[in-house]
Every structure is written in structure tokens, then in C-alpha cells.
Design a protein around this nucleic acid. Structure first.
Length: 562
RNA sequence: GUCGCAGUGGCUCAGCUGGAUAGAGCAACGGUCUUCUAAACCGUAGGUCGUGAGUUCGAAUCUCACCUGCGGCACCA
């Protein structure tokens, strides 16, 4: 349903013909308060052409307008305020949601097009930190949003599974580690060797040489080196999997850095063919000075390849494999320049689809104002944060709803949901300082608040028993009005979230809808047995549908009771 | 130095393409559970929207300068 269109049409009839429907549509705004109606049209721009004061124009236009189909149309100063017919509106929107159910809001702008999403991408042998959570959770949510918009996302976990750090790891393992220790607690112990390596290498630079030598062995296909690498990799992966399961995230591909080892020569060949490669200070570069970018370093002085070389190979591989309509990279904003360069080089290679690559950047999480650093052992372990949050959720349940069944499962959903929601509710570019208390908060603008709202609504529906959601769903209760309008806005919210790749748009919407419903809940007796009962229950049902869709899009579970 | 991002009540943030008295949450204070889950609801208090100029009928929103913070800037990813 489209109530805005109704407003545009009403205006088009009385406005000068040179103003197009499209222009009208752009000028219409939503008033801040409901006493100013549901839509408003400012008449200032007409003042010049009509040679009259805006408030006069507004008054005149209102006099000429047909009020049919609206509750009323009035002017307030220079604005024309439209009040929708609440009864007709509620009936139409509730019927639509109840009919569409989980499909409510679905759109097909994507037309099935493939969209690889590079996300999560933790480094092997290092624990997942809060930083990885961002990439994982933002990527996952964007994938779900795009699915609802008709795209086919492909979630790629571009694992950090190759590079000199493995040389360091092997050296550390051989010096201080043991098979038993690693198998007991793979990630933490591997991390221990890695941190110790960096500490000791400060005084013993020969350790770095040794590490380089081991990495060289890996590249040369040395059996021992590769078998250690494979072992570290698979241990790490199964540890990561535990966290992904908790977060409810699944991947379509785990092709990480190592996967592109044999695909870089072709890239370098092409660069050479197109005469793009230049030698500079002993290294091979692509000059990007025309674009005000520093050069892209393709090959080091020692002939080894670099990050961008691998990413070029990956970009091309993804285009060939998936024929994508766009390709997303959920990576921190500190890498913005890297992606500019990546696109620039691809463009120079003649790949116009470079324009379809989008860097979905997000802000840094700091701890005490400082950047997190694995090397210095300064990390916030995601697993600990999740555990703390779940423990706290469990306590709350014991306190508030001790008879609840499946307490542990609900605590898991609520605790993890709080952490995930917290990460998604602000604009992704915002960087924030980690604060456990804030992350695991359950009151106010939080995930649990939305979950709780949904659980209470479901509880009403359970108490209502069998309801035939049919017939007249007219609801002209002013308390319900904001909620109804919000439900109707959902498809627009979804499309905006997809357009700007912003899960926070959905999170904020869910909070708004939950708040609005809680107000309704507090002021209306829904189960009262009167003529409006079915309509009110339809609203409750519709709210649960939209809240559950929204939480689902964020990757947050919606427990039925809590 | 240079490029990018940000600067809104004590704290964390909204504010869509410029529009009608700048909105929430937390914290503070005060109310609301014999009635659908009080993880909720209602109310009070709190803001020169970093600073200065400009564009406009109208600027938190656009332009410029400056200040502050964070991030990037060739052999890490």
C-alpha cells in the first residue's frame, strides 16, 4: 500500500502543471509530531512563481483540494498537513502483513544477482576479537537484507591463512610448544607463542630471520612446514566454527589468502601485458599518481607478492566465478585507501566492473582509547564477551522469570543477542570504545528490549487462543496509530538499509517499533472482549511478524518467552 | 605534512534527499504491578548542535577557513 502516493496525487491536481509528481514526492515530508498530520507539504518554493506569501498559498490550495479519502487536510502556516483515514489505513496494512507473514517487505530489486560479501576473515591461530565480530555481524546482516531485496549473497570468509606470521608461529611452536598443549587449547596457546615470539624478537632479531626462512619453506612446498600449517589451520577453523554457530552465521566459502597463492602470477602477467608495471626502488609497482594515490606495491624487492596482489587475484576470481552484480568487502575503514587502489588498478586493467566493488567500511573498536593489537596481546576476546553476556542474561532470568523453561537456551539468545545488537545499532562507520557494561546492557535501546517486546506480544497471542484474523481490521485507536504507521514504513526502511548497506537502519527501526508497541501495550487493554478485539490482536500479530523479521535481519534470535 | 572520517545535553547516540518548538537511551530525581511478562510504561530536570564566516525565504544538515580527536600515507594484512 502506498499512502504517500495518495498525497502526491491530491497535490498534483491543484498545483501548477509544471511541478511534476516526482518533484512533489521529493518535497513531501513527515511531520515531527502527529498533531501536524501524517504527511506535510511545504509551500515555500511556490512563493516566487505564484507571487504570494507561502501561508496564503497553503490556505488557497487546501480550499481547492478534494478531502475525500483523507481524515482531513488543513494548512498550518505555510504547510499543508494531510491526515490519513485511520480506519481504512489500518485495515489495509494489517491485512497486508497478515497475508505476507515472513515475506512482508520482500522486494525484487536484486533480481537474483550474485553479491559476494567478503566478511569476518579472522587470522588463523589468533583468537577472534571484537573487531572480527563487527565484520562478521555486519556482513551477515547485509547478506540477509540483500536476500530480502532479491539478491543472492555469497558469504566469503577470506581467512588470514597465509603470510610471514606463520613462519613466526612455527618458530614459536618449535621452541616453546608441544603437540599436547596445542591440542588442549589451540588458539590460546598458539597466540601465546606468537606473543612470546614478538617479545623475544625485540632482543633477538635472528628469530625474525628464522621465521622468514620457515615461511619461505612453506612457499616452496616443504612438507614439514606445510603439515604444521595445515594442522594450525584446521584447529583454528574448528575453534572459529564454535563462535560462528553461536552467532548463527554460516559461510558459503572459506577461500582465504592461501587459496589465491597460485592465482597471482596470472594477475602479474596481465599487468605486464598492459604495461602497467613499473620498477621503483627495486620493487614492482603500479603508478597511481594521476589519481592522487600512492603507488600500488605489487611485488616486494625480494620478489614476494603483497596484499593488493592477492586481492586483485581474489577480485578477478570472484568476478569470473560468481558473475557478480556487486562485490562487497566488510573491512575496517583504516583500509579505505587500499580499496581505492584496488579499484583503480582493476580499472586500469580494463575491468569496468571495478565500479561494482564496494568497501563496506566500519569504525574501529578501541580499548581504553587504544587500538587493539594482537601482537601486544591486547585483545578483547569475543568468546569472553559472549560468555559474560550470557551469564548476565541467566541471572536476569533467575530474577525475573525463574519458572521459564529452557533457561539456558533463552539466556544464550538474549546474551548473544545483546552483544550483536549493540554492534549493529549504531552507524557502522562510528568507532567506539569497548565497554563491557554497555555491551551487555539489557534495558533501554538494546537487543533484549526488542526481544522482550516480541515475547510479551507473543504471550498475549497465546492467551488469546485461536483467533480468526479476518473481517474488518479497522483500528482507529489513536494509541495504535504510530505503530500502524511504523509497520507500513518497513518496506521503505528495508530498501534504505540495503541501499546504504546499513544494518543500523534496521536496528533503529526495530527499537522504534518496539517502543511504540510498548506504549500501546501499556495504555490499551488488548484482550478485552469487545468489537475491536480482533483488530487489536491483528496489530499485535503484525508487530510480532515485523519485529521477528527485523531481528532476523540483524542475526538476533527472538525467543518466544523470556 | 597530507588525505579520509568524526565533533549534537554528564555519558552513548538519532536526526532520511536543508524545512515548522533539535529527538532517544543511560545516569539523576519522582510516579505506575489484585488487571495481557515492571527486561516495561509515565513524568521532571538537562543542549551556544566544535568555532567563525558564507549560500538560502529557511542550516545540526550545503560551502570555505580554523580548532580538536581518530585513522591511512611503499615493501604487514
Amino acid at each position: 500500500m502506498n499512502s504517500k502516493k495518495q498525497v502526491v496525487e491530491a497535490l498534483a491536481k491543484v498545483l501548477p502543471a509544471e511541478i511534476t509528481a516526482d518533484q512533489i514526492n521529493k518535497l513531501i515530508e513527515k511531520p515531527k509530531t502527529s498533531d501536524l498530520g501524517d504527511y506535510a507539504f511545504p509551500t515555500f518554493i511556490l512563493a516566487k512563481t505564484m507571487h504570494k506569501a507561502p501561508n496564503m498559498i497553503a490556505e488557497e490550495l487546501v480550499g481547492k483540494m478534494d478531502q475525500a479519502g483523507f481524515e482531513k487536510i488543513v494548512n498550518t502556516g505555510a504547510y499543508i498537513n494531510f491526515f490519513l483515514d485511520k480506519a481504512a489505513f489500518s485495515d489495509a496494512i494489517l491485512k497486508e502483513v497478515l497475508k505476507e507473514q515472513d515475506d512482508y517487505g520482500n522486494q525484487n530489486e536484486g533480481n537474483g544477482g550474485n553479491v559476494p560479501i567478503d566478511m569476518s576473515s579472522p587470522n588463523i591461530a589468533k583468537p577472534m576479537s571484537m573487531g572480527h565480530l563487527r565484520s562478521t555481524v555486519i556482513g551477515n546482516s547485509i547478506a540477509k537484507i540483500l536476500t530480502k531485496l532479491g539478491y543472492s549473497p555469497i558469504k566469503i570468509n577470506h581467512l588470514g591463512d597465509w603470510g610471514t606470521q606463520f613462519g613466526k608461529l612455527i618458530v614459536g611452536y618449535k621452541m616453546w610448544g608441544s603437540k599436547e598443549e596445542v591440542e588442549e587449547d589451540p588458539i590460546n596457546n598458539l597466540l601465546k607463542y606468537y606473543v612470546r615470539f614478538h617479545k623475544e624478537a625485540e632482543d633477538k632479531p635472528e628469530l625474525d630471520d628464522e621465521a622468514r626462512a620457515w615461511f619461505k619453506k612453506m612457499e616452496d612446498g616443504d612438507k614439514e612446514a606445510l603439515s604444521l600449517w595445515t594442522w594450525f589451520r584446521s584447529l583454528s577453523l574448528s575453534e572459529f566454527q564454535k563462535i560462528y554457530t553461536r552467532l548463527g552465521v554460516e559461510f558459503d566459502s572459506f577461500n582465504g589468502e592461501a587459496f589465491y597463492n597460485d592465482k597471482m602470477d596470472a594477475v602479474i602477467d596481465t599487468l605486464e601485458e598492459k604495461n602497467l608495471l613499473k620498477e621503483s626502488q627495486g620493487a614492482e609497482i603500479v603508478d597511481l599518481s594521476d589519481l592522487d594515490l600512492s603507488p600500488a606495491l605489487i611485488k616486494k624487492t625480494d620478489g614476494a607478492t603483497l596484499y593488493i596482489t592477492r586481492d586483485l587475484a581474489a577480485a578477478i576470481y570472484r568476478k569470473n566465478t560468481y558473475k557478480f552484480v556487486k562485490s562487497l568487502y566488510v573491512v575496517g575503514s583504516e583500509q579505505a585507501e587500499h580499496f581505492k587502489k584496488l579499484k583503480a588498478v582493476l580499472k586500469m586493467m580494463g575491468y569496468d566492473w571495478a565500479d561494482d566493488i564496494h568497501h563496506i567500511e566500519f569504525g574501529l573498536i578501541t580499548n581504553g582509547g587504544k587500538k587493539l593489537s594482537t601482537r601486544k596481546g591486547r585483545v578483547i576476546l569475543l568468546e569472553n564477551v559472549l560468555n559474560d553476556a550470557v551469564d548476565l542474561a541467566k541471572k536476569q532470568i533467575e530474577e525475573k522469570n525463574p519458572d521459564l523453561k529452557d533457561k539456558d537456551q533463552v539466556a544464550e539468545s538474549v546474551g548473544v543477542g545483546a552483544v550483536v545488537f549493540h554492534d549493529l545499532k549504531n552507524e557502522r562507520r562510528d568507532s567506539f570504545d569497548f565497554n563491557l557494561e554497555e555491551v551487555v546492557r539489557f534495558e533501554g535501546e538494546t537487543g533484549p528490549y526488542v526481544q522482550y517486546t516480541n515475547a510479551r506480544a507473543l504471550s498475549i497471542l497465546r492467551k488469546a487462543g485461536d483467533v480468526d484474523f479476518d473481517g474488518d481490521l479497522t483500528l482507529d485507536d489513536p494509541e495504535a496509530w504510530d505503530t500502524l504507521k511504523l509497520i507500513q514504513e518497513f518496506p521503505d526502511i528495508l530498501s534504505r538499509a540495503g541501499r546504504i548497506y546499513e544494518p543500523s537502519v534496521i536496528a533503529k527501526y526495530a527499537l522504534k517499533l518496539a517502543k511504540s508497541f510498548n506504549q500501546y501495550y501499556a495504555h490499551s487493554k488488548i484482550l478485552t472482549d469487545d468489537a475491536g478485539r480482533v483488530a487489536r490482536l491483528s496489530l499485535v500479530k503484525s508487530v510480532t511478524i515485523v519485529l521477528q523479521i527485523s531481528l532476523g535481519l540483524l542475526g538476533v534470535k527472538a525467543p518466544e518467552e523470556m
